[in-house]
Structures are given as structure tokens and as C-alpha cells.
Amino acid sequence: QRLKVEDALSYLDQVKLQFGNQPQVYNDFLDIMKEFKSQSIDTPGVISRVSQLFKGHPDLIMGFNTFLPPGYKIEVQT
């Protein structure tokens, strides 16, 4: 199923809320996405950065996985 802009906004809100006391994490996530948009980093690069940034937050990682193309997935560490 195709995700919409509303889903992206909702996900960004989720990240912002979860790191309400660590706004730098939210800003880092926005920076990663901007680097991807400008093609400074590719999909595997995004996956590497996001998996480090959201380590210990499996719900955010699983939410992020829904935006990844087929064949890509961040494994959740339990």
C-alpha cells in the first residue's frame, strides 16, 4: 500500500513527541532525510544512520521500515 503525505507527517510527529526532551534527535532525523533528498547519502546510508539514531526505539524503527522500498529493512534489536 502506498503511504501518503499524511503518513509522513504523522511519523514525524511521532518522532518529535518521543524525543520531546531531546530535540536534537528529531533535528538529526530531519538532517538525515535532507541529506537523502540532496543525494548526499543513499538508501543504505539512511538505514545505517537511522538505525543508530533510533536504537532502543523499536516502534520508531518499525514505523520507518514502512517507508523503505522492498528488500530493505532495519532489524529491530530486542
Partner: peptide
């Protein structure tokens, strides 16, 4: 690019960042 939904998320993030959100 083979990741249209990730591009969409990146576009939304860029707009959000631009708004200072």
C-alpha cells in the same frame, strides 16, 4: 530512485524543517 516513499518522507521532512517545526 527506487525508493519513492522514502523520497516522499524526505520531502515532507525538508518542508517541516524549512518551517522551523
Amino acid at each position: 530512485l527506487p525508493a519513492p516513499q522514502l523520497v516522499m518522507l524526505a520531502n515532507v521532512a525538508a518542508v517541516t524543517a524549512g518551517e522551523g517545526g
